[in-house]
Amino acid sequence: MIAYLTKRLGLSVAVVFLVVLILFSLLQLIPGDPATVALGPRATPEAIARYAEKMHLDAPVWQQFLIYAGNAATGDLGIDVFTERSVTTIILERIGFTLALIFVAMGWAMLLGIPLGCLAAVKPNTWVDRITGILSVGTIAVPSFLVSIWAILIFAVNLRWLPAIGAGEPGDTADQLTHLILPAFAVGLSWVGYLARMVRASMLEVMGETYIRSARAFGLTQRRIVFGYALRVAILPTITLIGMGFGGLISAAVFAEIIFARPGLGKLIFDSVMARNFPVVQGGVLVATTLYLGVVLFSDLLIAWIDPRVRDSL
């Protein structure tokens, strides 16, 4: 386990390092004075001078990169061009909105998708199975931003049931929750389909195993067999899917935040791109990718912990 952990962790750190390198070299690729480019055309000469000194722009490029990477590793992501606040602080203020959206979206998708997949697997080739199949392909095929737009049209514009814009009054939990419903619906919808299909496929495979037949011979109830034994094994590929699909989840959350004007990490990066506020873009992108890599790593380790065969194969 320790060897697997070290190897997997080392690989993730290497990828993060590569991401930092890519982000750093993207800024080097554009022509012009690096300080003006990094701070944008609206920066004051004093800010440019301060930035040039802080980033050691007179040093060779590789040294600049090491300084940038070193700062990023210690949690210093630079300063916002306009407000001159620490980028790390700004991101920490916003990331809660994104995490809340992702957890709620994933939560309802799992609560619906996993039982649906089980049901379809237990009753294969019945109408339950067929409807689940059509439903899952349908929800997977509709892009999440289109779900967002149509949900706004139906529930906010026509029916006026739910608010479309913002994250709700700070401190007012009920208001914040009602603001969370539509974005979470849009982000989670396609996951109902993914999860139902995945669980159905692996469940069908597991239900054919001999130990399930033994359990049946022992006289266990169907419910006990499905939820007590089969689902435990069938859930493994689903965990991998959630880990691998987390990037798509982040993409969907970014779209939802922009469309619903929800002040999360995605909206922050989008607004900073529009304002050409490069330090915030850089920091935000780095945090988003690190978050993704962290989740992939976590799901891999979780699987290795549950399933010893995976541990030994790498």
């Binding site: 990037g247 970014v254 995605g266 992108v285």
Partner: peptide, 8 residues
Amino acid sequence: PTIILALA
């Protein structure tokens, strides 16, 4: 994530 790369 695709959108993040696109934004960058």
